[in-house]
Write a protein that binds this DNA or RNA. Structure first.
Length: 201
DNA sequence: ATTTGGATCGGT
DNA sequence: CCGATCCAAATT
């Protein structure tokens, strides 16, 4: 295990969001390590970005981890039933984060992971993981980390406006969502198209 | 103390 | 479009 170094995360969220495509999200579990390839992300840039939980410098118990420095997990509950996993980026005090929106299973699991809520459900991520250090490199290793894939795959990067942030005015139109074009695991792929792409003949 | 609505998802 | 399901944040 060689976690991405903290300097990877200590950059603008938009830069990191794009750079995370194709990286592996890894989680240590009782049964072993589970790995998924990141195929969809979104950048949030508080305090300016009105779509961010840290908009206007909002600083509460929930958003506190966004101010604590790059390379930590920000996990929150949404709609009463879904957890969402973010990666804190930029300098400490600058509340940027990248929402991980979809994975492609690589090893250790095979559960639906197309969309931020399903991603967390598939890996068993919840608010207990809020604040975990993704750069922990003790001999034992951390619970959750990201690393570069052994052999990089070609990537066609697409971008679009972010999903579900219509309340944010002009900020909602910024193309801060990044995804792997052609991955059937991207969240907005229709159920029918996904079935077609994943069906084994 | 009470209200409101959300960085979702699957089914209709 | 709708409902599930609950908590954070804003408001009274």
């Amino acid at each position: 295990m060689k976690p991405l170094p903290r300097r990877f995360y200590a950059r603008d969220a938009v830069v990191v969001a794009r750079a995370l495509l194709g990286m592996h999200l890894c989680m240590r579990q009782p049964q072993g390590v589970v790995v998924g390839r990141i195929v969809e992300t979104e950048a949030y840039q508080g305090p300016d970005d009105l779509a961010a939980h840290s908009a206007g410098g909002r600083r509460t118990a929930r958003t506190e981890v966004m101010y604590g420095g790059a390379g930590h997990a920000y996990v929150y509950l949404i709609y009463g039933m879904w957890n969402c996993l973010n990666i804190v980026t930029a300098a400490a005090g600058t509340p940027h984060a990248v929402l991980l929106r979809a994975l492609e299973p690589v090893s250790g699991f095979d559960a639906p992971c197309w969309g931020p809520g399903l991603l967390c459900r598939a890996l068993g991520i919840d608010r207990r993981h809020n604040g975990v250090d993704l750069c922990a490199a003790s001999p034992d290793g951390g619970v959750l980390w990201l690393e570069a894939p052994g052999e990089p795959r070609p990537l066609r990067t697409g971008r679009s406006a972010r999903i579900g942030v219509d309340y944010a005015g002009d900020w909602a139109r910024r193309p801060w969502r990044f995804f792997d074009r052609g991955s059937p695991y991207v969240s907005t792929v229709s159920a029918a198209a996904r079935r077609r792409a994943l069906s084994v003949p």
